[in-house]
Design a protein around this nucleic acid. Structure first.
Lengths: 241, 241
DNA sequence: CGTCTCGTTCCGTGTCACGGAACGAACATT
DNA sequence: AATGTTCGTTCCGTGACACGGAACGAGACG
């Protein structure tokens, strides 16, 4: 029964709803009466909500619980000042992400009034190989991780996404030397990205990135900014001041 | 069974863990074998995680789902640029909060390197009457809400929290005139706060605030900044540019 | 060595989750 | 107006499985 409830809640990905009952039944693959009963329970618990028109969406209780998740909250809290610095220095959209399996999950995204239309929402996950943050995590995540990623077919989000293992391997080697990962229209058309890894004792635990419209993407001024922010956060996580 | 699972997950508030099995059993009020079985299920679903020492904490899946909650995500997304403006103008800790029943829930908090030690974490809830954001929501949340709050004993977080209904009523009236809510050491000692409501068609749907160490709290320059940000967000929510 | 408390496993009992079937309402089609 | 669809909801007999007291082995402590 927990599994069924989880199936229903998970079927709200990646939009969060709202969905109608029949829609939920189809997305979750459960019979309609079952969804009806469980959804009512979940609403009672505050994990789902009903809109005025009777549709279901994820509930506020879930937001509150999700905000408490220690591994996420602590890292975000520590990183926020550095993300602020990076944003103020670049005036562009900045990201904080961590690795979760073969994906990158975004913990924070900061932007100004000219927000880019990006797939990198907080809590969303994207393939490691298609994003700046992902490549930074991949380059400093150990060789066995690299080999595992390269052993599977590389997913692609746009026509520019890297799908040739050799090309990805070369890019990762460059990143390992420079400490910076680049991404050009591989996640979304028209947007380029530069990223740097965050260390906490040997392995990369997170990465920062700056996403910029391709038209005005100039790596030279961005590189020191993102590197500085990432190093500052690394030092903070190591317990420094 | 869903209720029991929810009881377990909710028993992680407000810290997020980690807790040992016996600790969880005590906090949730459930028998130890029941917690053991359900917690294992929840771990399998990714809603809980086990630390190296075998303790339980809230899991990453919960963070991802919580980030999708539409009512929270959309408002946060719309507000973020204005929060940025407010932070850059004041260089102090800024908040975005909404009302949830008789409490205020914080959706976002932005700060620099000199972060204040505040109880206003994202996803946390505090009494309406003890916070700047809460008072702003209360003053513009309709008379029936005000009366309902005033009809209960007013909670207090510090010795400065307002507990006299008459004092709160006066403060709310002043807020209704000025469009600004003040709070002085009512949530945490040594911190003052100024807040402004965000409107989206008549009623206040959210509020912004700036929290400042009492020693350097100067309302004069903060007031126009927080008012400007709140009005800008209101206009944006009304569909403006 | 005795005595805690811990996390974990077992298993008989009884409950309540399950979902096919049926229903009325709302809407679309003819 | 009549018919057909699809919706959300309710009912209820069946059987799977959630339940938790009891017991167990492992450490920690004195």
């Amino acid at each position: 029964m927990l599994d069924k409830a989880a199936l229903i809640v998970e079927s709200f990905r990646p939009t969060g709803g709202p969905y109608r009952l029949a829609e939920l039944a189809q997305r979750s693959g459960l019979p309609k009466p079952t969804v009806h009963r469980l959804a009512a329970e979940l609403v009672r618990l505050g994990w789902l909500e009903r809109t005025d028109e009777g549709r279901y969406r994820l509930g506020g209780r879930l937001f509150e619980l999700g905000s408490l998740v220690p591994r996420r909250r602590d890292l975000r809290e520590a990183a926020l000042p550095f993300l602020q610095d990076l944003f103020e220095a670049t005036r562009e959209t900045v990201h904080l992400g961590v690795r979760e399996g073969m994906k990158v999950v975004y913990l924070e995204r900061i932007h100004g009034h000219d927000a880019l239309q990006l797939p990198s929402h907080i809590g969303h996950s994207l393939p490691l190989s298609c994003t700046g943050v992902g490549k930074a995590l991949l380059a400093f995540g150990g060789t066995e991780l690299t080999e595992e990623v390269l052993s599977c077919p590389l997913p692609s989000l746009t026509a520019h996404s890297i799908t040739a293992p050799a090309r990805l391997r070369t890019a990762l080697e460059k990143t390992q030397v420079s400490g910076l990962a680049y991404e050009e229209q591989e996640a979304v058309l028209g947007v380029s990205c530069i990223a740097a890894p965050v260390f906490a004792g040997g392995d990369a635990v997170a990465a920062l990135s700056v996403a910029v419209p391709r038209a005005r993407f100039r790596p030279a001024p961005l590189a020191p900014a993102v590197r500085t922010a990432a190093l500052g956060l690394s030092r903070m996580l190591r317990g420094g001041i």
